[in-house]
Design a protein around this nucleic acid. Structure first.
Lengths: 347, 347
DNA sequence: CTGTTAGCGCTTTCAA
DNA sequence: TTGAAAGCGCTAACAG
């Protein structure tokens, strides 16, 4: 009768403290805790006999043993956790990014969701101090990330320092497509509703559209405006200001984000203005909900889920020290033509 | 000349490893690491002289010292982190919950976002094993939480075991209000589009509506249907099945969630069916987007942000061992009447 | 193949 | 008022 056949000594799994520790498993399996560690981490192949391995595994199962992550982190230096620093999780564009990140990290790594305030620095530092293996940053200025001690990947920040790992959208195709679409419909008097946040992506969205427009129809006049990325704020703005824009002969409104376009559509509906009958509306982002507005929204498609997935994959590679491909991932944009845009109307 | 006046010895802040450790601070300030710990944790009052304290604080600032969280966790047992286990972060209802949680936890605690798969148990165990101080669970069966070793608060699970800490909506008022609204508009033939997930909240949503209806208009007939909580799936279902429902004389469709109602609205629009002209539509949740659909959606209002905030506050209290008020928080529901519901039409 | 040993960086008694 | 020392639970060299 070998050791394997003997009943495994029962050791109280529920010690006062709570979970079982490696020492408990070791005692129950009559091995050293080093062996337990080897088996628990799947490093037993060729180093521990099959018998011992089986016995330890059984006890681990029985006791529900899981290595204390804090203790493991202390020695390995790894946290098995990355953070996503974003400004507003209720923004569907951000939710989509988060979903992409979730898909990329799998089950081995956890995702910390950090909502930033207006100021970015303290949050970044706090997250780094909390202890994560890497950080995905949606937007803040790149200057703050130096000396954080962990890899950082910047999201949707086309103007970030060349040397910084990042994933962003190539806004050129989408911007040009939208310009062509609008110019083709005869729009020569536009209103561009920018975001108030001074982010590079918004500058790019604007300039790509304007450049395209001035190339295709140099006589186009674009009135600038701006608002927060908030449905209600934008809605109020439109209700207040549409009469003026109308007098100016605006035939199309383009917004920097879908959320703002939602507000524009709502404000216009409040006013009884028909879209695209009296004015066309288009935007950047094209989140799923953009198909459901009345009318469905024409928008430059920015695949946010893909951005999340790509950036997280890059970050994971950086963390592992793998240098797979480029540290800069560019994701193409396109145009989703729906029915919120139509021929320019002249009154 | 006292020790305080002497220049603080320069110790390389950027050691090969990365961040400064307590030992670096101790060496630079010429104190023991025990003293550094005391000062860093604000426990120096009365135990360390003002002079020493000031000197240590200065060095901490200089070196940018932050205690290693893994090391601290190992000894304190606290992780300063809670997890939110939910199924789909792109669902706006979940995003709202997450926003509420974020608001509640403040800066001292971090939020782990865990997306569950179809199976709940492994995820819960994995999160607990990862090391968090507590878990917010959106939905799964309560049986799986026993012996996790950390406090768990159940969200929106009205039928959870009495003894379990939880926060949920009282669906009675909203359900009754919707029943009254619909009955008052003359609807006697309804389609109820339930969710496929077998969750208590969905059973409650349905029964509260049906109970109200049978009380106010006992002759009401309700046809049951179900779909996943996904816009496109629901949209297809409606496109396929509306003709049959129409033949059955259905004058109103009520869905278990906003997301499903979005799909219904889209499907109906595809079919050219006017809402509420030919059929009324209503749902449960009332997320912000519900105001933006065409037409704006009548919905039972379930304050998700508040649910997130309340449940997180409860969890934090549980973690701290504070027993403030009840372990069961009930949040009232109401009805947002918008224009997707109108008088029942008889053909 | 298995066990012994030396820390990872920190908090916390307990002495001095 | 300060410091020495004992771990927290684990991993990873290194012996045997």
């Amino acid at each position: 009768m070998s050791a394997m056949d003997e009943p495994v000594p029962r050791v109280p799994a529920n010690r006062p403290g709570g979970r079982a520790r490696a020492a408990d498993v070791a005692a129950a399996a009559r091995v050293s805790i080093a062996t337990v560690s080897l088996v628990a981490n799947g490093k037993a192949a060729g180093r521990v006999s099959m018998q011992t391995q089986a016995r330890v595994e059984q006890v681990i199962e029985q006791l529900g043993y899981v290595a204390d992550p804090a203790a493991r982190s202390l020695v390995t230096g790894r946290r098995q956790c990355i953070a996503l620093l974003a400004h507003d999780i209720t923004n569907p564009f951000i939710s989509l990014i988060a979903a992409g990140v979730t898909r990329a990290v799998g089950t081995g790594t956890q995702l910390l969701l950090a909502s930033a305030g207006a100021d970015v620095r303290p949050d970044l530092a706090r997250i780094a101090a909390f202890g994560v293996d890497g950080i995905l940053v949606d937007h803040p200025a790149s200057e703050h990330v130096a000396g954080l001690g962990v890899p950082v990947v910047h999201l949707d920040d086309p103007d970030a320092d060349e040397s910084l790992p990042r994933a962003y959208f190539d806004l050129a195709p989408g911007g040009a497509l939208l310009a062509g679409h609008l110019a083709g419909l005869g729009h020569r008097r536009l209103l561009y509703l920018d975001a108030t946040r001074p982010w590079a992506t918004f500058a790019r969205r604007r300039t790509h559209l304007l450049t395209g427009l001035s190339k295709l129809a140099p006589d186009t006049i674009v009135t600038p405006a701006r608002s927060d990325i908030d449905i209600d704020t934008t809605r109020q703005l439109v209700r207040r200001t549409w009469p003026r824009w109308r007098v100016d002969g605006v035939t199309a409104i383009v917004t920097a984000t879908d959320v703002q376009a939602f507000g524009v559509l709502a404000g216009l509906a409040d006013l009884g203005v028909s879209v695209p009958g009296q004015v066309s509306v288009a935007s950047f982002d094209s989140v799923p909900f953009a198909q459901l507005t009345a009318p469905p929204l024409t928008a430059v498609a920015l695949p946010a889920e893909q951005l999340g997935h790509t950036s997280a994959t890059l970050l994971l590679a950086l963390i592992d020290g793998r240098e797979l491909g480029s540290r800069v991932q560019v994701i193409p944009s396109s145009l989703d033509v729906r029915s919120s845009t139509g021929p320019a109307v002249t009154r």
